[in-house]
């Protein structure tokens, strides 16, 4: 099948590399940033399309790697053009938008895959698998960490604009909200606190989730560390055991590099170790399921529910009160 990417930033590049491993034919990209698109096209020997419509016309699957506030319109357009969609997380900025996207794709008979990549990180997958196999008994307390630095972008830094990215809680912490829900099931209650820098976009948040089935989780997220520092961690305790993992340890290769502004690493991406690239794994999975018609392991509904938790956390931060889902 033919794949086109819309967008030309960090995620577009990461996804382009991922698509290369799938067997799909990556034909081109479209982007408002022509210079960036040209660079991407040259790197992956693909075409630059004049605009989104032209790209849609020419592909079977469109991979949407643009700022979150643009997701809805692009997905709706792809659905009406009967194109399958891979769309970066978060699915949208509002639940209603996400619902409409899911409905439009359903109605058009096309697949919608939300790229919740953390589910494809091997340590997160394995932890989930061990929990599901009953290795640690009934879940008790889940601790998840995802603290990074303020995303750097040379031009328009849309990450910092909450009207376009949803802010750190929606853009970054959604990963762990999704993962926690994957482990613990539906969430009953969320309480969260967030502190902002006196100067600049730095911020740090902590959220407590309580699951309907009993367990509780603490998710920690932030744009708070010095540039280049990105720490993630998992600690899952149960009645019969415990799973621990931290990015501070266990790296098969450790490197300490300088990055020029604008390079891929200027938006922090966690290093997965030497296993397969999780971005490639998620696209391989999406591609296989689109081809075969099998259900995705992580559905658009999961993407929507993760957004629901993130929005509840944001509401809790704003009101200072726990939010019931």
């Amino acid at each position: 099948m033919r794949v086109g990417i819309v967008g030309s930033g960090v995620m577009a590049e990461v996804h382009a590399r991922g698509w290369r491993t799938t067997g799909a034919e990556l034909v081109g990209c479209a982007s408002v940033n022509l210079e960036q698109a040209t660079r991407l096209a040259r790197q992956f020997e693909i075409r630059v399309y004049k605009n989104y419509s032209e790209l849609l016309h020419d592909v079977d699957i469109v991979d949407i790697c643009v700022p979150t506030h643009l997701h809805k319109d692009m997905v709706l357009q792809a659905a009406s053009a009967k194109r399958h969609v891979v769309c970066e997380k978060p699915i949208a900025l509002r639940l209603q938008d996400g619902l409409e996207m899911i409905e439009a794709c359903d109605k058009a008979g096309v697949r919608l895959f939300i790229a919740m990549v953390v589910r494809f990180f091997p340590q997160y997958r394995l932890s989930r698998e061990l929990v599901a196999r009953g290795q640690i008994g009934q879940l008790g307390v889940i601790r998840l960490k995802r603290v990074s630095f303020v995303p750097q972008k040379p031009g328009d830094n849309w990450y910092l604009d909450e009207t376009r990215s949803g802010g750190m809680v929606v853009d970054l912490m959604i990963h762990d909200f999704d993962y926690a829900r994957w482990l613990g099931g539906e969430v009953e209650r969320v309480y969260a606190r967030l502190n902002r820098a006196t100067d600049g976009p730095g911020q740090y948040a902590q959220a407590i989730l309580r699951f309907k089935s009993g367990p509780m989780a603490l998710a920690e997220g932030g744009w708070a560390y010095p540039p280049g520092v990105f720490r993630t961690a998992i600690d899952i305790s149960g009645t019969e055991g415990l799973i621990e993992w931290s990015s501070d340890e266990h790296a098969p290769v450790q490197s300490f590099m300088l990055h020029r502004p604008g390079e891929a690493a200027s938006v922090g991406l966690p290093i997965a170790g030497l296993s397969d690239d999780p971005y490639a794994l998620e696209l391989q999975h999406a591609y296989k399921c689109i081809q075969s018609g099998e259900p995705f392991e992580v559905t658009a509904h999961d993407g929507l529910e993760a957004l629901r938790i993130a929005l509840a956390a944001r509401e809790s931060i704003a009101t200072g009160k726990p939010v019931n889902l």
Partner: peptide, 13 residues
């Protein structure tokens, strides 16, 4: 103005 989490669980085996 600082926020702080505490995990006080008897969660280690």
């Amino acid at each position: 103005g600082t926020q702080a989490s505490i995990d006080c669980s008897w969660s280690r085996p």
